[in-house]
Design a protein around this nucleic acid. Structure first.
Lengths: 228, 228
DNA sequence: ACTGCTTTGTGAACGTGTGCACGAGTGCCT
DNA sequence: AGGCACTCGTGCACACGTTCACAAAGCAGT
């Protein structure tokens, strides 16, 4: 019962960058590069070289001083750390516009996250086939999750249905959720949730645009330009 | 009275949360709530009450002690700070799977980011109409950006075409980019780029799943996810 | 083996973000 | 008017993340 003491903890910020390094390293490997320096990797990843070294150091000392990192070995280590040594089937909830696009987006399966199934609450959509995956009814969720050993669920419903979708996923046994709906999901502590919100991203860009404008744009009149 | 002078700098972390507060406040306003406490807002936003107060304090002192914040007024202030007092037309590059989904996703226009145009490099796609927006050729980008005063571009191309898309957007005059392609874009310092990468998000979830699984780390042959 | 060049790994300094705790206002009730 | 309950605004301490700078370690050529 005693789960083995988790070894080392990798900072969240590092975990978020490892997939980027992984993709770059994989590309480099495909191009025949078999050794790479932290500086080069940093350049390709748009970050600082010291950061790359520190990030990689959390995995262990897998570099060679004076030389760099062996690409293939590093790819293996990162994949292992991220749990990418085997596939993680995902189930998509919501067969609307977004759900369809996600199913059609090849990136899922290719990167180790095959779409086990798509479910929807609308009977009219059940039975149709999207990119080779048949849409099933949301009531079948528990069965799908169990038989296909799904631990990651993707919420691609309208905002109003997102919480219900999350509840159903959790009840079915899913332990991680990727949420595309513009809603803050309430889930048990143990469930890991990540959110992708287009509107938020655009509004952050908008903030910077508005800031850049310095009040020059056809503003409604409430903007007081800064002195400099 | 209000010395609305200097454009103070708002921390990035706060800017990223303001859109969430804004959405919640808008919803609450629609439901007839006209005053809200930092605690309630925190609960709905899944954050700490002190954080909410600190975040909002960057906008100015718009709360009333002992009472809370006036929803309508706060909505106005956040919108002003985020530059949402007017629309920001966006142009989508790439009329493939993702580009179509984005165009079809109503959330853009509703939230103040109307799709000015979709462009693609493939002549076969030019001329078709997606969700009321006609697909135009990518060579028309400069003209579109200029005539429709677009400052935000969305890269929805395959990875291989993303850098070219970004280069064209920048040359056309766009100053902010939302990138959906799994590529680190190289752009001039002045250009603001935000990235949305599904694979990265899934891999972060995978990391936590793998960690949760306990000690089965050196799984090479036995790759069955722990069914706790 | 020695010299010189390169690059890693990491301690330490610095910057940013978070959360507590509490003073300072505000409104309500008696 | 005075007391009380409530909630904001913020100083402070702590945690987290980033960057610098440099010793340690490796390779190549002689």
């Amino acid at each position: 019962m005693a789960p083995e003491r988790t070894r080392r903890r990798i900072p969240d910020a590092t975990v978020a960058r490892l997939p980027v390094y992984l993709r770059i390293l994989t590309e480099q490997g495909d191009e025949g590069v078999d050794s790479i320096s932290s500086e080069r990797l940093a350049e390709l990843g748009g970050v600082n070289a010291a950061k790359v070294r520190k990030d990689l150091s959390y995995l262990g000392s897998y570099g060679t001083r004076g030389v760099g990192y062996e690409v293939a070995y590093l790819v293996y280590q990162i994949r292992r750390e991220l749990g990418l040594t085997h596939d993680w089937p995902v189930v998509i909830v919501g067969a609307g516009n977004l759900g369809q696009a996600l199913a059609g987006y090849g990136g899922f399966g290719e990167r180790g996250f095959p779409v086990a199934s798509i479910v929807d609450i609308d009977d009219a959509k059940v039975g149709s086939v999207l990119s080779g995956v048949r849409v099933r009814h949301i009531d079948e969720l528990p069965q799908i999750v169990q038989t296909k050993r799904v631990s990651i669920g993707v919420v691609a419903t309208p905002a109003g249905a997102a919480q219900d979708a999350a509840d159903r996923l959790v009840r079915a046994g899913v332990t991680s959720i990727l949420n595309f709906a513009p809603v803050v999901l309430a889930v048990p502590r143990a469930i890991e949730v990540r959110k992708v919100d287009l509107a938020v991203e655009l509004q952050i860009l908008s903030y910077h645009e508005q800031r850049r404008a310095g009040g020059a744009i056809h503003a409604v009149g409430n903007t007081r330009p800064a002195s400099a």
